[in-house]
Design a protein around this nucleic acid. Structure first.
Lengths: 149, 149
DNA sequence: TATTGTTATACTCTATAACTATA
DNA sequence: TATAGTTATAGAGTATAACAATA
């Protein structure tokens, strides 16, 4: 259990970390902004899946996911295969062009981190990753929680 | 120094943490969204300052800051006092109404953290805060960095 | 001439709601 | 009737560029 003033500071830090996110976003090509890039990244990480599952992983509404997916489909970076078990949905998977695009993004991102985090140890980066994952996990899906108001 | 694959994972976690940011943003009243709320928070933390300094702290463009400030001024939460040393700029400071508004936001934020982070120790929260601050510091102001491309 | 702000414009991300097709 | 997905609409955040006033 932590003190309220700590929570205030944590909120400030989370807000301020937006500058890092924006810095990373500026690396992306105009035709693949951060929303679509996240789609590629998750499909690469978890393999083919339906839209609803992708929306869950992105933790955004399905309507948002649908638009990002349409964007990457239009550019040939993913394809929608029939879902054998359910005609309402399709299975999304990366194309070779999508893999190539993602490789480029990943490389640029890694370069940027390498430039800025050169004095972080492997263990320190790992710990930050772990804490961020835990934070996300602790919050769960905020959209489902009843407000006490 | 860390491995490239670690950087990819870190980028994913930073992107995914957006769901926490959005969860916090949903706590805010309609008349005070996250941009304006950050203005109040920083003025409370650092005391009165000029717009350019506020833009620096927010790490966003001055034009963006100007709009957020206009928003909170219109609602009487901050006031613009003449800057004795420079007629081009004014000193921004919280009003009592602004302090009251901020107190409400802070309370709701702390409640939400308390609900979700009940199994985090004080030291763990502190460490996350420290690592986020260090991350931000390591990146500096990304907008100023020359790209190697 | 350079700096401080402001405003207009445009783009991305997101959510809500209405709708279609299938389960 | 309920679920998967799409599309239209609207609101917030941000950056760029053009502009005004002052240093």
């Amino acid at each position: 259990m932590a003190a309220p003033s700590q929570y205030t500071e944590l909120a400030r830090q989370l807000s301020a970390i937006g500058s890092v996110r924006r810095g990373l976003a500026r690396l992306l090509p105009v035709e693949c902004p951060s929303g679509p890039a996240a789609v590629l990244s998750l499909l690469n990480r978890h393999g083919e899946m339906r839209l609803s599952r992708l929306a869950e992983l992105l933790a955004v509404d399905m309507s948002v996911t649908s638009r990002h997916v349409a964007h990457v489909v239009e550019r040939g970076w993913i394809e929608r295969a029939p879902d054998p078990g359910d005609k309402r949905s399709r299975l999304l998977r990366l194309t070779p062009a999508g893999v190539a695009m993602l490789d480029g993004l990943t490389g640029r991102t890694a370069d940027m981190f390498a430039r800025h985090l050169h004095d972080w140890s492997d263990a320190e980066v790992e710990e930050l990753i772990t804490m961020l994952a835990r934070l996300r996990d602790s919050f769960g899906d905020c959209r489902m929680l009843p407000d006490e108001a």
